[in-house]
């Protein structure tokens, strides 16, 4: 094979592709935060019964490899059995029913100071004038990179 410019061109092009493969010394955050209620004080646990008018401390542990940013708590009804939780327990659900005045709890919070571990501890009072029945409590947490973790727990609100 004579080394005509053609072959140099080929080799150059192959080198161009091969050489610049990833220079992964950049410290990128590729880890999601974690969220858990699976400890003694974690609340709510799967299938827990909440009584109207009572105040409960909603507690979950969140961690991240770099820096936590925000979390949210969402309580919505599951009267139509639209989904189930991601916990191991399976709860007895009431019959499907129409929502009249369901509890809608939608709140966001931020976590300051670049913490890598934090315990969510938020008191929530269950109003007395809402529909009793099956509900979901969904926690979610983000880190400063924009990774998110979620968990969802089946709960029941009773009179």
């Amino acid at each position: 094979m004579r080394f005509t410019p053609k072959y140099y061109f080929f080799i150059l092009s192959i080198l161009l592709i091969a050489s610049c493969s990833s220079d992964d010394n950049v410290d990128k955050d590729e880890e999601k935060p974690t969220i858990s209620v699976n400890y003694n004080e974690g609340f709510p646990q799967g299938c827990v019964l909440l009584v109207k008018g009572e105040t409960y401390n909603f507690r979950a542990k969140v961690t991240d490899n770099k820096a936590l940013a925000s979390y949210s708590i969402d309580i919505h009804n599951n009267f139509d059995h639209h989904t189930h939780d991601d916990q191991v327990t399976e709860c007895d659900l009431e019959d499907i029913k129409q929502a009249i005045n369901p509890l809608i709890f939608i709140e966001n919070y931020s976590i300051e100071d670049n913490l890598t571990s934090y315990e969510i501890n938020t008191p929530i009072t269950i109003p007395s004038d809402i529909d009793a029945g099956d509900y979901h409590c969904a926690y979610s947490v983000t880190d400063q990179t924009g990774w998110q973790a979620r968990t969802s727990i089946d709960i029941k609100i009773i009179e």
């Binding site: 940013a69 925000s70 949210s72 969402d74 709140e107 966001n108 969904a138 979610s140 983000t142 924009g146």
Partner: peptide, 12 residues
């Protein structure tokens, strides 16, 4: 579409 670390009505 960049995922931020903030929430709106509990959605990222």
């Amino acid at each position: 579409l960049n995922p931020t670390s903030n929430y709106y009505e509990t959605l990222q």
